[in-house]
Amino acid sequence: MISQLTVFIENRKGHLAQACRVIADEDINMRALFLADTTDFGIARIFCDCPEKAAEALRGAGFRAKVIDVLGVRVPDRKGGLAELLEFLDRENVDVEYGYCFSINENFAIDVLKVNDASIELRLVEAGYALVQSEEVYALDDC
C-alpha cells in the first residue's frame, strides 16, 4: 500500500491554492494531484513527500486532511490490461471505491485503487502483478 494524502476542499475560490501553499510552505514536494469534484466540495488526492507531515500542516491550517492507504499496481500497457485487473479484484470479492491512472510509460501504466481489503496485495503478487512501492512515488527521507 502507498500513502495518499486526502484533503477536503470547499468549492470556493482560492481554496485549492491555499492547500497547495500550506504544503509548499512545509518545504514538501508534490508528485501528483487528482481531484474528485462535486458541486460544493472537492476531494484532492495527492502524492507528496512526507505525507503525514503534510497532513499535519494542513490540519493545523484548518483543513480536513488525512493519509489513506491505496493500492498502486503496474498494469501492462495493452488492450484489456485494466479490465483484467478489475476482473481479478471482482473474483476476489474486493470492492473498489475509486481509482485513477497515476502515470504511463512505454510498457505499463500505474493505476491507483482505493480498495476495501488490504490483504489483496499478496494475492495480486501471487497472480503476477507488480505492485508499486512508496519510494517509487514519493520520498520519506527527512520527514
Binding site: 486526502t6 477536503f8 474528485a36 462535486t38 466540495f41 476531494i43 488526492r45 490540519r59 480536513r64 488525512k66 489513506i68 471505491e97 475509486y98 482505493k114
Partner: peptide, 13 residues
C-alpha cells in the same frame, strides 16, 4: 465532519 470521518469517499459525504 469530525476529523476521523472517511471524507476520502465522496459517496459517504
Amino acid at each position: 465532519t469530525v476529523p476521523d470521518f472517511p471524507f476520502d469517499e465522496v459517496r459517504k459525504l
